[in-house]
C-alpha cells in the first residue's frame, strides 16, 4: 500500500472476543480507493464493520475513521459516512419518497435532487411501498440513501448480494465514480469475488477473525498463479512452493506465490493465472489446515 496516500480509515490491532470467536484485525482504506473485505461467512467481516461503526465496543486496538477514534463521541462526523447493511433497514410500509423525507430531516447535507437522481439511475420507483420491492431493489434503495448525503466514506456489508448481474454492474459503476475525486473511499465487504475483482483497489482476506492478507488487487492477480501438472509428478514440487497442493481428476494443482519464478523453476508444469476466488480458496484452506495442525 502506498504510504504516501492518506488513509481515511485505519484499524490497528483491533481485538474483540466473543464466546468461540476471537477477532484480531488490521485494515486501512486509503483515500481514493476501494478496499474489498473478503472471506467466508462468519469470518469476522460484519463484526469488523460493527466495531468500526461504534455499534460494538472493541476490547483493544485502535480505529481511526476520518481522523476520529470514537464515532460515538462525535456523532456529527457520521454525516461523512454512508452505511449499507446486509439487509435493508427501512420499514416496509414506507416508500422511497417517505424514506427521503425522514432522512432529509436527519442528514444536514441531504441532497434531495441527488437522491432522486440516484433512484432514477437505479430504476427505483418513487411511490411504491418497500414491501413490494425485491431484495435487489431494497439493496439499491439502501445504497441510494447511503450516497445521497455526499459522504466521504462508504462502509458496506454485502451491498451487491441479491442483485442481478446487470444491476450489479450499475452499482459497481456508481462505486467507482464515488472515489474518482481521490478524497473518498469505500470499505466493501463481500463474498462475491467477481465484484471485488472488478472494482476493488485493495483486498483484505479475512478468515476466522484474522486478516490473512492485505494486498493490492492487481498485485494479487499478477503475482499468484495456479501450478498444474500430472498427478504422477506431484512429488517433484518442493514443500513450501505451493499452497494447498492437491490431486485432482486431471492431475495436481496448487497456488503459487510468485507466478513467474515458479514458471521458471517448473518449466514442465503449467502456471495459470489465478482469479481472486482461487486465491481466497487456497489461502483459507492453508489457514485452516495450519490452525488444525497447531
Amino acid at each position: 500500500m502506498d504510504i504516501l496516500q492518506k488513509n481515511i480509515l485505519e484499524v490497528k490491532d483491533l481485538a474483540k472476543d466473543y464466546p468461540g470467536f476471537h477477532l484480531k484485525m488490521d485494515l486501512a482504506v486509503p483515500a481514493g480507493s476501494i478496499m474489498g473485505l473478503v472471506g467466508p461467512n462468519g469470518a469476522g467481516k460484519s463484526t469488523t464493520l460493527r466495531l468500526i461503526l461504534g455499534l460494538a465496543h472493541p476490547d483493544s486496538g485502535s480505529i481511526q475513521v476520518l481522523g476520529c477514534s470514537d464515532l460515538n463521541k462525535a456523532p456529527a462526523l457520521r454525516e461523512d459516512i454512508g452505511v449499507v447493511f446486509d439487509e435493508c433497514s427501512f420499514p416496509e410500509m414506507l416508500d422511497a419518497a417517505q424514506i427521503g423525507k425522514v432522512l432529509g430531516k436527519i442528514h444536514p447535507r441531504w441532497d434531495k435532487a441527488r437522491y432522486e437522481q440516484l433512484l432514477k439511475r437505479l430504476e427505483l420507483p418513487w411511490g411504491k411501498k418497500i414491501k413490494d420491492f425485491s431484495r435487489g431493489m431494497k439493496m439499491k434503495l439502501s445504497i441510494a440513501a447511503a450516497m445521497a448525503h455526499s459522504p466521504r466514506l462508504l462502509l458496506m456489508d454485502e451491498p451487491t448480494s441479491g442483485l442481478d448481474p446487470m444491476v450489479r454492474g450499475q452499482v459497481l459503476e456508481l462505486f467507482q465514480e464515488f472515489i474518482q475525486d481521490e478524497e473518498r473511499g469505500i470499505l466493501l465487504s463481500s463474498h462475491i469475488t467477481s465484484d471485488l475483482e472488478k472494482v476493488a483497489d485493495y483486498i483484505t482476506f479475512v478468515d476466522r477473525g484474522r486478516a490473512l492478507l492485505t494486498e493490492e488487487k492487481d498485485t494479487l492477480v499478477e503475482v499468484y498463479g495456479v501450478l498444474k501438472g500430472p498427478a504422477a509428478r506431484m512429488g517433484e514440487v518442493e514443500p513450501g512452493d505451493a499452497i494447498g497442493l492437491t490431486q485432482t481428476k486431471h492431475g495436481f494443482e496448487g497456488l503459487v506465490r510468485d507466478k513467474a519464478a515458479m514458471a521458471r523453476k517448473y518449466p514442465d508444469f503449467l502456471v495459470d493465472r489465478a482469479n481472486l476466488e482461487e486465491v481466497i480458496l487456497y489461502l483459507v484452506r492453508e489457514n485452516r489446515e495450519g490452525s488444525e495442525e497447531k
Partner: peptide, 20 residues
C-alpha cells in the same frame, strides 16, 4: 417495527447521538 427492521442499528449510524 424498529426491532423487526433493524432500525435501531440503522439509527445508530446516522449523525445522531444515542441520547438524541
Amino acid at each position: 417495527y424498529d426491532e423487526f427492521y433493524h432500525w435501531e442499528r440503522y439509527a445508530a449510524v446516522l449523525p445522531l447521538s444515542r441520547r438524541q
